[in-house]
Design a protein around this nucleic acid. Structure first.
Lengths: 194, 194
DNA sequence: GCAAAATGGTTTCACTTGCAACTAATATGA
DNA sequence: TCATATTAGTTGCAAGTGAAACCATTTTGC
């Protein structure tokens, strides 16, 4: 997400000035030949590349919601998820959907409640659970923010043709499936997960 | 990297049980139509996907060096960088190369020094800087670890054909270039950066 | 119907990290 | 040549995070 990797974290990879670093970044994975040779070319190593890329892209987007709207990453993840599902959903759902620890989500929700960007709806059926939904104010912020983020995404992707974008989406999708990261909408709705 | 995103970190996206979540993960980016509609489909949104994927892949690999060799992420990043460059290199270089904060690298280096996995070589020309290199012990660990990691990478990529892997590498490379994340080997060597 | 297990959510605690301040060494430039 | 700026690296501090313990409620199984 960037729903950036806990940039906070995440963790993650920070920004240090000179960023130009790789070599022959063009092709393949580190693998195949490398496995035999026992030699690792960092800049072809998929996990390395994914992390750097994710960190970089997240960074590019986070300025939009951090500086501009005072949202931190977990908070943005909550809003993104609520905006995505039209119906109110539980903290649990948000947590699993964004793969963010439930305590982190809990804290983000608390902050958003205080800012009155989201509100809770008690669930009569199960009084442990609260459904979350954006307030009018939260929705307004969300509606203002989303187009900015989408525009940024498009900027980043200008280096790819439409066909290449589709191809990238397809390839990422295959990896996601094989890692069992995804689920079809039918499944989701049928099982009414989370 | 993961050189996982500061899983620690970053940032990061953690692992919660049910991971199956997306819908129509197949194609494209969130963009285009979405920009106009002002509607965000999280599961097509590139930053979101990259972060989840990076987190997931990092996770898969980190068990290798964390549980097995007691290395944390920054420590592994240091070793990975030292192993990649044949000559000793500075902490600064490692920091920039892996996009990890210099204080984090500093601490990782301290830990590796204590475990005698790396050693410092004073630089006569510039006495502020130390060159780092793996000890025999460090190299042994590295040589044992790398094949495991490469094998994991290959496992993750089994869902793609050779051609698809190349294509993915190419597409990531284009994005990296356009984000100025990379640099050709000629440049790197010519300028003797870091 | 009731005890035990499980679940949604919050909170406490220990640990990691980033930032900024700092030290030591080098480079700049008047 | 001497003050100023810059750079490599370390460290103190504050903030954020994950794990585990916790509370309240619901589910399970006997």
């Amino acid at each position: 997400m960037d729903l950036p990797v806990k940039t906070g974290s995440e963790s993650k990879l920070e920004r240090t000035s000179p960023k130009r670093l790789s070599r022959e970044a063009g092709l393949a994975s580190a693998g195949e030949g490398a496995v035999k040779r026992g030699r690792l070319d960092l800049f072809k190593f998929l996990p390395f590349r994914l992390n750097r890329l994710a960190a970089e892209v997240s960074q590019a987007l986070s300025s939009e919601y951090q500086a501009r709207y005072g949202l931190d990453i977990p908070e943005w993840r909550v809003l993104a998820t609520l905006g995505f599902r039209k119906e109110p959903c539980s903290a649990q759902y948000v947590s699993q959907c964004t793969r963010t620890h439930k305590s982190t989500i809990s804290r983000a929700v608390t902050a958003l409640l205080e800012r009155e960007l989201v509100e809770r709806v008690a669930n009569a059926d199960d009084r442990r659970e609260f459904r979350l939904r954006m307030t009018r104010k939260g929705k307004a912020l969300y509606d203002e923010l989303i187009p900015r983020l989408l525009r940024r995404e498009q900027e980043i992707l200008t280096c790819l043709s439409t066909q290449e974008r589709n191809e990238l989406g397809r390839l990422l999708g295959k990896i996601e499936s094989s890692l069992d990261l995804i689920q079809t909408s039918e499944e989701a709705d049928a099982k009414e997960v989370y």
